[in-house]
Amino acid sequence: MDIAALVAWIVTALGGSVLLARWISGGGLRQEQTGTTRFPAPVVFGHFLLAAVGLVVWIVYLAADKDALAWTAFGVLVAVALLGFTLLARWIPVYRTAPAGPEATPAERHLPVPVVAAHGLLGATTLVLVLLAAAGVGS
């Protein structure tokens, strides 16, 4: 279960990195100043950084086999999931709305739906796998 959670977390992180790169390259940071984007940079980068910190804690848990680290990684992952749901809730209306023009189109409008869906599903899977591993299921 521990390794399955690690693999799911890494694949989820790769998808999230693609989404972050697309948002930045689409002008997300510049658009925050103009109010075009619906994604606040602190939420975007907080989601990314907390996920990375949680992954590091999970890797340390795998090396040290300390239950407290597994539960810490799970707690961090819950915070990551909450930020992710916040971003999803802000992304859905933007995606459903017809673009108003290139300069008025939020950067998150161009995020690929399959990557968003896969990232969310893998993130939920990771959360469950980490919970099960921390609880000692399958060990």
Rank of each mutant, 00 (worst) to 15 (best):
H119S: 06
G136R: 05
L83F: 09
L50S: 01
L88F: 14
A135W: 03
L50T: 09
A21Q: 09
L111S: 08
D2E: 15
A51Q: 04
A107C: 04
H110I: 09
Y95Q: 12
G16R: 00
L127A: 10
I3D: 11
L14D: 02
E103I: 03
M1C: 04
L20T: 10
F48S: 10
K66D: 14
V7A: 14
P99F: 10
I92S: 08
I92P: 02
I10K: 00
A117D: 02
F45I: 10
A81E: 01
A41S: 13
V56F: 13
I24T: 07
T72I: 15
V115M: 06
E103G: 00
V57R: 12
A134C: 04
V7C: 06
D2W: 12
P112I: 08
P40I: 02
D67S: 15
A79I: 04
D2N: 14
K66Q: 15
G54L: 10
S17I: 13
L121G: 15
L50A: 12
P99H: 07
A64V: 13
A52R: 01
V60C: 07
A79T: 00
F85E: 07
I92A: 03
S17E: 01
A89Y: 11
L131W: 12
A79W: 11
A5E: 08
L19R: 04
A52F: 03
H47T: 14
G16L: 09
E32C: 03
L82V: 14
V76A: 14
T34I: 01
L49Q: 09
I10L: 15
G46N: 03
A98F: 06
A134G: 01
K66N: 12
R30I: 09
I10P: 10
A64S: 10
P102T: 09
A64G: 04
P114S: 06
L122N: 03
A64K: 12
V53H: 11
A4C: 07
Q31Y: 07
F74G: 06
L121K: 05
L83Y: 06
V56Q: 11
E103T: 11
V115I: 15
S25G: 02
P114G: 05
V7Y: 11
L19E: 03
T97E: 15
L49G: 13
P99K: 08
L55H: 08
R38Y: 05
A107E: 04
F74C: 00
V57P: 13
A117K: 00
M1D: 01
L83Q: 10
M1V: 09
L29T: 06
G27Y: 12
A134R: 01
V56A: 15
V57M: 12
L121S: 02
G75T: 02
S139R: 15
V76M: 14
E108R: 08
A135I: 07
T105C: 05
T12C: 13
K66M: 13
A124V: 14
H110P: 07
L87K: 05
A51L: 08
G101F: 03
P112R: 06
T37E: 04
L129D: 09
R30D: 13
D65A: 14
A124G: 12
A135D: 06
A98R: 12
G46R: 11
E32Y: 12
Y61L: 10
G120Q: 02
L69N: 02
L132A: 12
G27R: 11
K66L: 15
L82Q: 05
T126I: 01
W58R: 06
V43F: 09
T34A: 15
A104G: 04
P102K: 13
I59Y: 03
R38V: 06
G15I: 05
D2V: 12
Q33R: 15
H119N: 11
T34W: 08
